[in-house]
Design a protein around this nucleic acid. Sequence first.
DNA 1: AAATAACCGAGACGGTACGTCATGTCTTGTA
DNA 2: TACAAGACATGACGTACCGTCTCGGTTATTT
Lengths: 209, 209, 209, 209
Amino acid sequence: MQSRTSAPRATGGRPRSATADAAILAATRAALVELGWSKLTLGDVATRAGVAKTTLYRRWAGKNELVVDAVAALFDELELPDRGNLAADVEGVVLQFAAILARPEAKSGLMSVVAESIRDDALRDRIRSSIVERQKLLVLEGRARAQQRGELPEDNDPEAAARTADLIFDVIAGAVVHRALVSAEPVDADWTRSFTRLLLNGLTASATT
Amino acid sequence: MQSRTSAPRATGGRPRSATADAAILAATRAALVELGWSKLTLGDVATRAGVAKTTLYRRWAGKNELVVDAVAALFDELELPDRGNLAADVEGVVLQFAAILARPEAKSGLMSVVAESIRDDALRDRIRSSIVERQKLLVLEGRARAQQRGELPEDNDPEAAARTADLIFDVIAGAVVHRALVSAEPVDADWTRSFTRLLLNGLTASATT
Amino acid sequence: MQSRTSAPRATGGRPRSATADAAILAATRAALVELGWSKLTLGDVATRAGVAKTTLYRRWAGKNELVVDAVAALFDELELPDRGNLAADVEGVVLQFAAILARPEAKSGLMSVVAESIRDDALRDRIRSSIVERQKLLVLEGRARAQQRGELPEDNDPEAAARTADLIFDVIAGAVVHRALVSAEPVDADWTRSFTRLLLNGLTASATT
Amino acid sequence: MQSRTSAPRATGGRPRSATADAAILAATRAALVELGWSKLTLGDVATRAGVAKTTLYRRWAGKNELVVDAVAALFDELELPDRGNLAADVEGVVLQFAAILARPEAKSGLMSVVAESIRDDALRDRIRSSIVERQKLLVLEGRARAQQRGELPEDNDPEAAARTADLIFDVIAGAVVHRALVSAEPVDADWTRSFTRLLLNGLTASATT
DNA sequence: AAATAACCGAGACGGTACGTCATGTCTTGTA
DNA sequence: TACAAGACATGACGTACCGTCTCGGTTATTT
């Protein structure tokens, strides 16, 4: 969502085309759907967006950064409406997450940038800040809401609470991604219900153990 | 683990060098460590292996297939020694899996080929048969062992049992991979214990629900 | 002498390097001398010229076209100074032609492109327009001059005159090339005088026959 | 016409297949017609001849030598029947030579091997002995016959006679080849008659000059 | 209004890797 | 020992993209 050069133009000169960014990101997603990550070329994206290749390089450092931004936009729609109880909230976020993962532009792009991020710390940070943290916030928000409802106990030890939140996040995100992209099976209502039951039972039982 | 052309040479002609395969896979892993997936080139692998590029293309269709085979070999060492009880068994396999994922050749390779497999069904099958199914067998084996010990009830409904096994597998593999590669946090004894407690509590509680 | 894309760039974009063409053709001739046609590679020419291989392919379709242009440049120096009489003119052009053929870059290149042109009409046209026609013009010019001097009769039948010119041209060019490249004997003053006497005697005698 | 290893097999072992040589040369000519010199590959020739590539390399050093032999066989049929007078003899040999040059296997092969021979003395000797000298003999034979008939004077100076024969040979062969392969015009009866008149008039006039 | 400055399109540039092909050598098993 | 089959190391092929650069031209702000 953020162009490479975060600092706004200091002084005079022609301002950057406002529409170009959106066109480029849309073109990137379209190219991801048609070609997939590995066949996607920046020249092709530029052509699709009706933009010169140089314009593209002026705003993003490379393919990775561009695709992160293009995919991150898909996660803007993630939110956590209050469905009344913790189980329903979890099922809601799982299904929402799965719905995004089902879209081919997310499928093709997400795993590829994660793969690249393994050897590129800057890219990992970019992914974390624009995609992962946004998901994690939902977990924290859901827990706070459940604590307000009395479904979960208050945090006595903040550090332990953070560790638990990380664990839960890895379990949710990991399981859904693995189901959707590795096992390539649908994340449907049945699976979601079973998974949620497993997770919440584990949580409440662990809390008392 | 398996070259592209599985059928052995029918008739005459010089047989394929037996040592070449191993040299190529080793060179591929070395290149993965040094360069990562995206910078790895087949020409470089050929040079490292002391082999002609054509020899490489004669045996694998491309980079993806080669890397799958090279990475799959890492998972050969996965096994499930009987540690006496279910929790210990789960912790054992999680740590073992995490140990493999911690190796840079696995890190770089695994996610990349999974990302590519999204648009390539043949590749997905190859990954499934040579990597994923091998992991899943451990889950099934662990469950059978736990049932023998009386830690888990016998399967009444085989179909439901299969669904549950799939769920557990996605949760274990997904959580470990997400922790290790996305969150980039260590899968240490602490985390493993917490995760295992969550999983097993969830399982036993869900079974009675 | 002429790059593949004769039309100059219509609109914007970086202009083609002006010096590249000359550098490439010179490098081609140097490589012809050192390596000969069959060992000459475009990659090597590109390296010698300090130019990328793609630049080379952007301007010429392949080895044949490049070598034709490189060799054709050698024939730019062909001219027909007025030596006062027909015999001297013929001897002059024969010796000039032979001097070019004696240069190793011409030797290696000319026969090879002619050989290739047998199966490639476009190449034949290229050779004709940039090499052969230039030689033929000298024959026509020499005849016109001889007619002005009264050494040859005026043309009554233009068509017959054209046929005769073609014949003379094939005889001169063919004999010189065959002597120089097939027989591999020197085209020196003696041979040239004998050949010219044979040709001119044949011409004048035939005209009256 | 001659395999590389002229010495017959000295001792035991499986004898060379007698039919293989002929099959290979025929396959070479067929490939020349279909593909031309530059696209012809030894592997393809071997396949066409139903022969292993190694067999081919055992008998010829490479593409050049093979093609020379294959093309040379075409010139076996050159002969000089006595047509009664010198002009008819010359026209006969010109037309015969042109008929061979009109065959696509000769067109494609001859110029190419000549081009290669420029940088390869061994190849030049091979061409000379198996192709060029055979043509030159016809010139000498024709002259002897004309001298017997009284159409040409006897040789007083043998060295001068040899020089003249060389000149005539270069003129005939060069003109015909240039007409056929460079100008790409037909060597028909008209052209042959004109050329012969030019040549013989030049010869007789020069002799008296 | 003029000058300045950064943007824009187009496209050529030096490179790198691709996947294929041909060369000439070698290793098999069969005759 | 020669043969057919075919794998092998080597290295050129022509193509596609990479990321950079050089153009001529186009907006904006600053003087």
